[in-house]
Design a protein around this nucleic acid. Structure first.
Lengths: 195, 195, 195, 195
DNA sequence: TATGAATGAGGTTTCATTCAT
DNA sequence: CATGAATGAAACCTCATTCAT
């Protein structure tokens, strides 16, 4: 079996284990069991460290996540449409990758601020924020949006995204359509220029 | 030393340790050191379990948090004012209890879904949500708010709260005033009835 | 059981294990078995590190060794007599502490030059050499010995000591008396002034 | 690549690794790295055992060592001259093969008494001793040396050799000339017949 | 109650070795 | 012959917990 495939398999099992058990109980034994490995040594063989494994998990999920969202954004032109796409894309990805998203949040909460996985995460949040603020700034400049502080609004939009994701994480996805509709309305109300 | 005082002391040390080190590194040794205890056995003596200790930490923080917010809410009458008070109270408590809030989030993220501390947390989130939705429903009924889905809006408001708290956690509190102002505006725009 | 006694017991078991099996096979399991401990964790409880345990072994043996030799040296006054006492004391100690001496040599050979146990050892060798050279220098000054280079002779005397000890380590002590007698003669011939 | 050459290459890398790191840290990985091998499996392929590899290392060094000394001895006829040649040859070989000699000592010190590498070593020491004792016995018989116990004197001479080598190992070789000169004098004094 | 030594399970990691390719 | 992934035993160490004092 090729190294790459094995690493992917282990990362995938780690995501499952962390999502299900939490970071501290997602031991090598649990991960190995989920991946069908015969020895925890095989994990150490492919990853130098527990830290490296967690970093890889974060990198993997964030990578897929980012690619998914960027592809959706590219389909739209106006700032308002992109803003909507930004939110719905993330909600859709999350709905389809619940375990991965849950694992992500758990790793982030467990890690020391100085730890490598957390740095990757912090960078993403920051770049998310900057990109979104820029999008909003453009929308204001073009007159699509009313005048507001783009940084503050970026915080709110990201917050709404996270909150919705968190809600979807813990409840059945029945609500999804209502929430999606209301979210769009709310964002529109909060951002649009005077009619 | 009285049992009660000792337990409180240990809980307090546990909050420090968890906030600083994360759940998995907040060992009894670390907690004992922070509490000035000479033996980790003393923690086991006062708490049946690690789970019981964590549950107690959650209960303690949530208790203080809830009392603080309720007191603030009681000062207001209209739904709109209570909504604003709900948000600012939580932001203020968080700003003054950063370690406790961070510990809370870490415990929640680390716990197994079935674990007792996580259940306490889930209950709180649910009651938060229900209380808020009821508040919004009242506001709609009284004509203070426009017609929206109160459950969805509750999700959004809680999301905004969490996002703002998270932002304040990781950045200097300079932004606090701008964000607070913009938040009020946004909530008003999103909720108010037609002018 | 007091900490001190437990540490001594573990050190003693470690000496046995190292002497018998060599450094790399003297695992915590072996040591725990020899000490009658129920868990290897108990060794970790009393010693921070394997390095600390080995350092302690070295310190223990060298301490007893040094005390024994100094006591013997103090019984004599002339340089020639002290030189003889120096040699015979060490031979006697070694004969009575074969396991300890063997463990010492093994630790020294295994350790990196930078390791802490080896530093303790290197210091002892150096101080041995200096003390002996000074003794020889005095003997020359007083006319007890012929003119020779005291540093070189110190090397030889220590070499003879080590060689004899090594020989005694690997062979039955039958030869002890002959060797002791011949050694005295040899040293006399090599050091004494012209008659 | 021929089997023979590969084995030699591995042995050579093992010598380096052991000399530098000590027995317990000279893992297959280290050895493979030093030999430029791409897999530790290759070592297992050419040597049945770690024990066999160590035995081979010992055999290799001792073989070269012995050949070197024998060649030097053959240049001399009198017992006194051969005794001097015996010592200087060993010192010279050691000076030119420091890593190999250090590896040798480390293997010996680490090995279980029953282990194969140690047996090879013990045999050498014994044969060294016997050859030397025989040389001395001859010298006495021929009247070149005074009357002494040849076995004891052999112990001393070997001891002097080892001590000098050890000293040279740990100190700059500046002292070499003084020590060599003094050693000759000392041996002469200790062995020569009455003048 | 408090102490601190003891316990035993379990953590990650490394090792020599095997085996399919 | 060579490779490198896989194996499983065993290493050291830490943890929450227990227990005698």
């Amino acid at each position: 079996m090729t190294e790459r495939a094995r690493r992917a398999q282990i990362v995938s099992a780690a995501i499952e284990a962390i999502a299900e058990l939490g970071c501290s109980k997602a031991t090598y034994r649990q991960i190995a069991a989920r991946a069908g490995l015969s020895s925890t040594g095989l994990i150490s063989y492919h990853f130098a460290d527990r830290a490296e494994l967690l970093t890889e998990v974060v990198r993997d999920v964030l990578g897929r996540f980012g690619a998914f969202v960027v592809a959706r954004l590219d389909e739209h032109e106006t700032a308002a449409a992109q803003l909507r796409a930004f939110l719905t894309a993330q909600i859709d990805f999350s709905a389809g990758n619940r375990a991965a998203m849950r694992a992500l949040r758990r790793i982030q909460a467990d890690a020391d601020i100085t730890d490598s996985p957390n740095q990757a995460f912090a960078e993403l949040v920051e770049s998310d924020h900057k990109g979104l603020a820029e999008l909003l700034r453009q929308g204001i400049r073009r007159g699509e949006f009313r005048e507001f502080d783009p940084d503050a609004m970026a915080v709110f939009v990201l917050a709404l995204r996270d909150g919705v994701l968190s809600r979807l994480r813990d409840h059945e996805p029945d609500e999804l359509d209502v929430i999606r509709q209301e979210l769009t309305t709310m964002i529109d109300l909060a951002t649009r220029g005077n009619p």
